[in-house]
Design a protein around this nucleic acid. Structure first.
Lengths: 162, 162
DNA sequence: TATTGTTATACTCTATAACTATA
DNA sequence: TATAGTTATAGAGTATAACAATA
């Protein structure tokens, strides 16, 4: 890369230098997508940090959670509910199965499908994970009142469930 | 993979079958991280779809936007503001530079740094993109009143700016 | 013919280590 | 010695195409 030689006359130089960097972020902070993405990345990082010893990440937890609360659920139902692609679910289910947390049983009416169930180890892991993630989120959202947290969830669901 | 032969007695089979799949999602829907992530993915998809012809994706737009509103900003300031790693910014800046939208100029006081500026083409692209993303979000958030949208942004910022 | 689950694979995004030039 | 920018690279996440088995 070659450094520019000539300087355009009158071009403002130096960039923002004020407090906290002085970077103007007004437009980005007015975008819902930007705020949602930054919040999501922040909460995902909290999740990964606080559930590291359980070896669970958000999507794997979501699978475990849905199977736990919906015994016999199929891969297709998981994909539809979580909006993920079928090929990407295979590895998640396989990993949880090999960990001894998940079990595939023949579907009673559809020979193509498998009904997914938690093992006792899976039930135990889910219970621990649910307790842990609730505590993690309480810490991350300490600045919000319970009413604000409820409002936030309702507004978010209005968008992605539309 | 071998199909299970014996069926555990008393195990509930068949899984959820009620309306809209009948899948119970109560716990997930009570998690802020889940709702934020689903909303973020939804709005990112809207962004990519509605700004495809501008060849801009969320992070590239954020860079363009910050440079436009902060002439002379450095890569380091962009990384800190957007919370991205320096090596991952290089390609974004290079691509925008090669498109003729960005220009690097020597930093007036720090010989290691470059001040980033928009070209006229960059200004034009930013103006189009800002108009487009506002329309995209209005469509995606049609179910929310302006007051609700403002509330949502404030609550989200309370979390990731904490 | 359509659907479930799967494999293979490619593409994108993100993270880390190491290097250079300068402060 | 520390920092700004860069390169190379590895890992994770996500997407499509194609296939076997069953509806």
């Amino acid at each position: 890369m070659t450094r520019a030689v000539a300087m355009p006359e009158g071009a403002p130089l130096g960039g923002p230098t004020g407090p906290n960097g002085g970077v103007r972020t007004d437009f980005l902070h007015g975008l819902l997508g930007y705020n949602a993405r930054r919040t999501s990345l922040h909460l995902v990082a909290c999740f990964v940090r606080d559930l590291a010893d359980l070896q669970l990440k958000p999507v794997g937890f979501s699978v475990l959670c849905l199977v736990g609360h919906n015994p016999g659920i199929t891969s297709r139902q998981l994909c539809q509910t979580l909006d993920i692609q079928a090929p990407n679910l295979v590895g998640l289910v396989s990993a949880l199965t090999e960990r001894g947390c998940l079990q595939r049983q023949p579907h009673p009416t559809d020979g193509r499908a498998w009904g997914l169930h938690l093992t006792p180890a899976g039930e135990s892991l889910l219970a621990q994970a649910e307790t842990r993630i609730l505590a993690s989120e309480q810490q991350a959202c300490a600045g919000l009142s319970p009413a604000e947290q409820a409002t936030l969830q309702q507004l978010l669901q209005k968008i992605y469930l539309a």
